[in-house]
Design a protein around this nucleic acid. Structure first.
Lengths: 201, 201
DNA sequence: TAACATACTGTATATAATTACAGTAATTTA
DNA sequence: TAAATTACTGTAATTATATACAGTATGTTA
């Protein structure tokens, strides 16, 4: 999918915020008015360009027939198993997308990660739970983090963080702490856990 | 807010599902076609009636200018403390509403209930977690239920369910089972727990 | 029992909206 | 450097849409 120009991004954002405000997409005239175009055709042509790049679909004949593409619906990706060797958010890792409900979790979530194993049961994180992860470099001791050690992704509590040693704690007495020497092992923090979703029944 | 007639409900549901499918509301003609009206005016008049009852707002002049009212935006209520003596979904109990993200939890949630106490920690339900509750009479032994015993609301696992005795199990070894005789105590099941949300950080 | 609400058909019209065609001009890509 | 893309103005036609007015019929409320 090609990149949008700044102007095109501006128009796409306008469409999204219009939908957020009114519940339906704007007309060409409304877009033009908002951005100061004197001709509705300016909007029309921008829309065609944005459609060509795959960000929207225009339903011909229908008034306000602008449909945001799947990717653009801002669904938050759910990551199942993480394939080795690639970024965690690679397309192949995305199981599905779930709607972005800002007010659901207080901090913004970049993706959900499906929990494997029972190493965090003592803090109520169970297998198959979805943890909401925020990508951040602001990693704090005591918080639950998503770390990648030698290309393996793991969820643990950060217990110690120094240049010589990083300790990741499993919240389950049957597991022992993971001690990592950052100068020897490849260690990356993928983010902090800011929330949890569980499907029961 | 007055109640809608069956036909009006049908039309409101059509509008919601149309928005779900296309991302914008239907026209009068589209509503009429879907429901088999031969005149677009039938839809128009239904819309006016539904607006009068407060479920939608019609923006005059705007095509597809149907806006769902706040209440109708299907925000799911979050219940904090339940005031004694009233229905659990009474206005005074509603802390806030969070957007309905169907695909978030697989079963539909009628409301979220903020968990008080630590009686369910062994199944990973912690204090302040929000459990997604589905109102249902189809209560099953083994599932986590929201029960009301003599006007007190509690979340427990249903262990036994017969006409002589109902046993509600706390999932925490420090708590003992609650045994209720339905013919003596007032026992109501408010619903089944179908999911869980937790805010960390 | 008169007034009102519900649930439509049918016709008509103003206006809202899409969209094609003809240009201009600057910038980017091949 | 020719061709394509971006970023618009301006005009106009067709179609999409909202919406008023005139009816018919049935059920409900005051």
């Amino acid at each position: 999918m090609k990149n949008l120009t700044d102007r095109q991004k501006e128009i796409l954002n306008l469409i999204k915020s219009f939908i957020g405000d009114y519940g339906f997409p704007p007309t060409r005239a409304e877009i033009s008015k908002e951005l100061g175009f004197k001709s509705a055709n300016a909007a029309e042509q921008h829309l065609r360009a944005i459609e060509k790049k795959g960000f929207i679909k225009i339903l011909s004949g229908a008034s306000r027939g602008i449909v945001l593409s799947k990717e653009e619906e801002k669904g938050i990706p759910v990551i199942g198993l993480v394939a080795a060797g690639g970024p965690i958010l690679a397309q192949e890792n995305i199981e599905k997308r779930i709607p972005d409900s800002q007010s659901l979790l207080s901090e913004s979530v970049d993706y959900y990660l499906r929990v494997k194993g029972d190493s965090m049961v003592d803090v109520g994180i169970f297998e198959e739970d979805l943890i909401g992860v925020k990508k951040t470099n602001d990693i704090k001791v005591g918080s639950v983090v998503v770390a990648r050690i030698n290309d393996e992704v793991t969820v643990k509590t950060l217990k110690k963080f120094s240049s010589e040693e990083v300790i990741l704690k499993a919240e389950n007495e049957n597991y022992s702490d993971i001690k990592v020497n950052p100068s020897v092992d490849e260690l990356n923090f993928e983010g902090t856990c800011v929330g949890l979703l569980r499907n029961l029944s």
